[in-house]
Design a protein around this nucleic acid. Sequence first.
DNA 1: GATGGCCTAATTAGGACTTCCGGTGT
DNA 2: CACACCGGAAGTCCTAATTAGGCCAT
Length: 387
Amino acid sequence: MELCESGEEETMETLVAADSLLNMDCPDGLSIEQHYSQTFLPSLGDVITAPVTQVTVSADGIVGPVDQSQWHLLHTKKPASQLQSKKRSRKPRLRRAESPTPEIKVKKDKYNKGGNTLYLWQFLMELLQDRQVCPRYIKWTNPDAGIFKLVNSKAVARLWGKHKNKPDMNYETMGRALRYYYQRGILNKVEGQRLVYQFTSLPKDMVYITDGDGTKEEEDEDDHTNNSGNEDAVSDDSDDCTISSSDQSVEEEISHPPQKKMSSISAVQTPVNQRTRLATRPPGQRDTVLRSASASLIQEKHLPIVSAEMLRTLQNLEKVQSLQPAGHASVFKTAQLLGSLYEQQAAAVMIQDRESSPKAHDKDSHQGHKSSQGETPQLVPLTTSDQ
DNA sequence: GATGGCCTAATTAGGACTTCCGGTGT
DNA sequence: CACACCGGAAGTCCTAATTAGGCCAT
């Protein structure tokens, strides 16, 4: 195992905190460093299953169910000019999907290729679901609104640096990446509160870890009144007790993906309708800068335009069921909305299939049932009205 | 030999950061 | 003074998309 180098300008506190975390032995022999660079990846590999090779919604997509022959025609019929230009000149490349744009792509086995392709926001979400680091180094201050705090920013940055194999990673650098998320509608800054950020959307079945003895409201109180002092206490002093006292649950944690820890941790799974409305909101979060849902995620106006490829992928919906929230934010929103769209379209197709092929009907009805169960984890946009 | 399909390596474009910086606010 | 925070600019790294070329069957 690689030991963390010391001797930087960081405080001893941070070094001890981060190093103890990074070098901590896990029951299965993995350090937490390996845990975040390896254990997460298989769990994310489950996010995107092999049959979902690509999901695209584009401006020239086609609405309506497409059968195989139509599908073939769609992809073989090209303008003559395009065919002629194949030889020497490159075709104009379609822009790849950016996070909050309507062009969505689910990459095949993206997380199983050995590369560290876990995005920073995914990494933070994973940290927030891991009681080894939450709430010691990162914690929810208002889970309902997706607001979290980097309790020990340097430790979190070092974890991120370890994950990305960037030993020089610091909070300033990581913070720049976080600030880019503002533009892309993935994160918002909570004004007036240092080290406090907000996810614009969250997975439907996000696991919320709260302080063992505290409530969310108490955490918020801490944030308003006892920021730095609390950080110190949380970051280092709690190292021994937290880790040692939770060995059993940590062991379970390591052996199970974060999403499956519900039985072993103090977790709160907030229903969507509860998360999207806040009865009482801490006054300090009133000034939260928020984008509207339409600005931050897939917009419903884009959804009538559904590519044939997307529709075909949705016909494999039972495979899509395994999509998990750690995937691309917009993917889940799209999957959610397209799922309902697909159900409507599938209903029409089912009538046809019932007449022609009973087996096809059984298959479709099965898929439709699964999708209507809402088993596909969805990202829930957190809008201004959520505050 | 011409043609078309398939496969694969190389190339390229673009996304997601990373690094550096100068500046402001607390 | 330290730290958090901001955003511009340039760079790196990685991956998906595309192309070119070889091989094989017809």
